[in-house]
Design a binder for these strands. Structure first.
Lengths: 194, 194, 194, 194
DNA sequence: TATGAATGAGGTTTCATTCAT
DNA sequence: AATGAATGAAACCTCATTCAT
């Protein structure tokens, strides 16, 4: 890879980070290209050198965030610990992302509100993959007799649904810290699959 | 109440229903007054005869849906049955709403950073009331030794979050009927509070 | 004239009065038909029974105000007093209207901003008549050797211009009462024509 | 100052001139952003690149015109001539402005209940300064026994009001040239303060 | 006569996008 | 690679006007 390409990628990454920040703060519609550019002391015109359009930029934000999260989840799956412990750690990871990357995660949750059909599909694929990791830990946990339930898919939906909901009410100033939440959620959600 | 007033209210209700539908599909920002009006074969100008502005219209959407749902839940709380059974029925009711009145009920879910502080408060109050009914059944269930958990609020959030999530994937053509879902969810969620 | 016609005229008059009030407060564009009707506990639809459109209504406001003022001016002209005294009284009258019927008078001053060509002409006629009364008192005053100037038309324009300007700064809470202004203006403006 | 900044300012000035023209012709409410832009073969959207909103644009119109006029008047005050002569020249200047820069100068005249209090104040300040120059020449003229009146402020208002009024009727094709008017007005208005 | 309801033209504003430089 | 400037579509909102009842 040439130096110029490297520079290009670095710049793209910077822009994505800025976009993630703004979109998380304001939501997709309210986040303007101008503000995203302003954060980096650029002008909005420049963004179009790096990204085809706003949708494309935000799409790449997702890819980044979600692939990061997926990676983390996978690492937990590969650790040498009990399935319960694996699931605990995956829950903690998901909660962290849901809180810290709130709006970006939100777009993954309701992508059809944001993306055109063309870009919808790749997102659904990543999303499906992501959910699949939870399916796997549950299924394998059942196979190893750590979990007992009959409907692993529905259990997974309960897990993800309840964790995604955290966004609706969580506030850093609220009563519980993120760490506490991670623990309590893990405790209670493990009960579901046990 | 005069006939004309009744008619006015009916029309307002129609508009609200249309608005709920569009807003749920598209989100607050993407839902346009024109589309909301078009659904009813009206023109956007007419909406302003009934509602002060877009915010006001959407606000009344929230208000209506929430207060209606609250009423239904309360009836279950007053039945003479065990707390577990009360909770099962409330879960069934909530799921039924979430599925059959999907678009209407969805409103509860989105708090939207849209509302001016003036209108945000009344919404939060009703929302709080609704959630409070679940809190109550859990707390009282604990007092009667039917449930055992230490964090009833978080349990409630897990319950509501997981149920609201059903909307994201449920389809009548899918594998499970609503009745099956109601049962499985009740089974799994009761485990959380037990 | 039949009773019903009388009633009609009376209602029209009421509406005109309301319109004058609102237009004076807000100006032509900001005064809405709804507000004009509201003042009389009517709905705006009703106004169209009495007036062809907003322009027509406001046009009749003018006619009323200006014909009233003209009448007053004429009465002063016919009093048996010196021309200086006649002019003093006319000045007082004009100032009073300029202050108390501020916006209506304003429309007479700049009618082309408000009226379509069709209605512009009648207004210009009345306006011309009105100014003519000042011309007359000055010309006759010169004929009777009370005044001495060579350019009566320009003097008249100075008089009217300076008085119309009062609107720009006069406030009831200001330092001088209307009565004081009437006197000082008369004193100073008489100097112009002397 | 960089070239680009200069260009920006020039464009802003062009827009201001266009706005002044339209607003004077139609008044604040009737002047549309589209028309103002159209005059310069631009689209209304572009105006928002240069000005925050309509109010801001019109505000800057006022500001510009007023400060420019003030500067010119001040030079006369500093000449070494009698106060009567100073006043004559200031009158001539004001009339010239009112006639030759009719549309630009007209802005001084309309205070429009349009501006938010925030923007109204700076305008009133400059306006006050401008008028203050006439006040000064009259007051100092009194101090030097050239003038005799007791109400210098009101005299000033008569002067400005009558001169501003010229715009309402003056036409180059009319009977009197501007130079004649300047002389006659000076003659008659000096009588007011003598 | 009066009105409730609807309309639609027209206005302001926002902002993603384009493009010459 | 970047930007300043312009654009235009689309959104919200206002309000004079119409008309069936």
């Amino acid at each position: 890879m040439k130096l110029s390409e490297k520079k290009l990628l670095k710049k793209k990454e910077e822009i994505i980070l800025s976009a993630v920040k703004i979109v998380n703060r304001k939501g997709y519609r309210r986040a303007t290209m101008e503000e995203i550019a302003g954060e980096l002391l650029m002008t909005k015109g420049s963004l179009y050198y790096y990204f085809k359009n706003k949708e494309d930029l935000v799409f790449q934000c997702h890819e980044k965030v979600l692939s990061q999260a997926t990676e983390e989840l996978e690492s937990h799956l590969n650790e040498c610990i009990s399935y319960e412990e694996k699931l605990r750690r995956m829950i903690a990871t998901h909660i962290q992302y849901a809180i810290e990357e709130k709006e970006t995660f939100n777009m993954i949750i309701k992508p059809d509100q944001t993306f055109s059909t063309e870009q919808l599909n790749p997102i659904l694929v990543i999303r499906h993959e992501y959910a699949g990791l939870f399916d796997r830990v549950i299924r394998e946990g059942i196979a190893h007799r750590e979990f007992t339930i009959k409907e692993p898919k529905i259990a997974r939906m309960i897990l993800l649904g309840s964790m995604n909901w955290i966004q609706q009410w969580y506030s850093p100033q609220g009563g519980k810290s993120m760490e506490e939440l991670q623990e309590i959620y893990a405790d209670y959600l493990i009960k579901v699959v046990k």
